[in-house]
Design a protein around this nucleic acid. Structure first.
Lengths: 242, 242
DNA sequence: CGGGGGGTTGAGCACGGTCAAGGGTAGTGG
DNA sequence: CCACTACCCTTGACCGTGCTCAACCCCCCG
């Protein structure tokens, strides 16, 4: 079994980090500190965001709803994540953001965002980097939903969350992390039914890979987890012509 | 049947555009013009990008490969899209980029990217916006892969591509657009097998929705297409507590 | 004329969804 | 302190969407 530290570096492809093993520094700019209770809505699908948030602590769930109520979780926002930066700039949001825990966030009203960006190049650069990180997470999840089996999907998501929490949440060490999610949240993230997620969790537990009890995730065997998640040395198959 | 112009505005949620009905202006900065033949590789998975590209004309396919060869297309890059902006900044790419047509692109070597960003705030802001647009596309695709049926997925992708080409490629008008893709490309984008994509295309054709012949896509009935894609007025179901 | 890449179609199967029922636990109020 | 309740987790049996395998066709290009 590899060590947690070795795991963190070996799977950097899963969670690209600007500065591995340390939280990202806050972005410069005239931010306002705010806090939210668990279950609070930072943003609703269809609304025009009034502020951009940088998460400082806690978990935020980003999800999209179809007209008939089907939900897809598109991101788990941890400290360092940016919420509310739209395209087009003053357009409506395609996602809802709700807190899963108590959350501390820095807010930048969109009314002053433009001038802040122009006067503070480091803010613009930092935002571009953070959004690029979010795009990377979305694309990694796309690979799972499109081309991995159910079992690989939940293994990969748990590995991803484990690594991200260990990187982003300072107080976390050891093989256990808190995971403030229900199985329904997980199901809506990996595109499965809650029942089937439950089955896959049981398999992973019975095979001694990971155990998810209460609201804590315990990694039992890092090697097995990497294997189950389908993370390996680089796929050297290059892009084919055509 | 709604008009194409009405379609373009009614589905702005599918393809967020900074300035609907007109191509995005080139970003400022010391860009170098380059061209690529069809099938060229701009970037290979696992490599460290040497330049950031802004696509000026043509199609570029962005895809990720699993170790066993499974492929997932994560973006179709059209004029205005940014390629090669990584997170972390000097890290390896998780995707391969290959051209599908002859492509004109503007290149900015990463060696001068940092100074260009610092001296040109509009470049940094523009990059952040373009990356945000790419993130939005990735998240929209996530919703399809996670929560739509096979038929909805291909209808939604065809609608999305139709609208994006009409917005981004100036020479395109009418109900037909060129689509330089094989059914295998479509399959790798929507997470289905090529055979099943073929079946769904047949259904959509038989129902008079869209027809894909040769390398051109023809929209037969815009209303039906919106309906099949599961695009509707806003899902007013708000985020639930917890 | 031959070859190859892509498109088309059908038959059978399996992965994952649906339906149904039960159990554990934490919070709440009597 | 002890129901009561609501939420979440768990498990099993059955079913359907979408995958696999196999064959054939068509068109373009050599």
């Amino acid at each position: 079994m590899v060590s947690t530290r070795a795991l963190l570096s070996s799977v950097s492809m899963v969670v690209p980090a600007a500065d591995p093993l340390s939280p990202e520094p806050p972005l410069p700019g005239p931010w306002l500190e705010r806090t939210f209770a668990p279950g609070a809505a930072l943003l609703a699908q269809g609304d025009v965001p009034t502020a951009v948030y940088e998460i400082r602590s806690g978990w935020v769930l980003l999800s999209s709803f179809l007209p008939d109520g089907r939900r897809q979780v598109v991101d788990f926002c941890l400290p360092g994540s940016i919420i509310g930066l739209q395209h087009p700039p003053r357009g409506t949001s395609e996602q809802s953001a709700q807190t899963l825990t108590r959350v501390a966030a820095a807010a930048l009203p969109v009314s002053i965002l433009g001038s802040a960006l122009l006067t503070n190049p480091l803010l613009a650069i930092g935002l571009a980097q953070r959004v690029a990180a979010g795009q990377e997470r979305a694309r990694a999840l796309l690979v799972s939903l499109g081309r991995r089996t159910a079992r690989e999907r939940v293994a990969h998501l748990l590995l991803d969350l484990f690594v991200r929490v260990r990187l982003r949440v300072p107080a976390c060490a050891g093989e256990e992390i808190p995971l403030p999610l229900t199985q329904e949240h997980l199901a809506d993230a990996v595109g499965l039914s809650p029942k089937h997620v439950n089955r896959m969790l049981r398999l992973l537990r019975e095979h001694g890979v990971v155990a998810l009890h209460g609201r804590t995730l315990r990694v039992l065997d890092h090697d097995r987890l990497l294997d189950e998640a389908g993370v390996a040395e680089y796929p050297v198959r290059l892009a084919r012509a055509g």
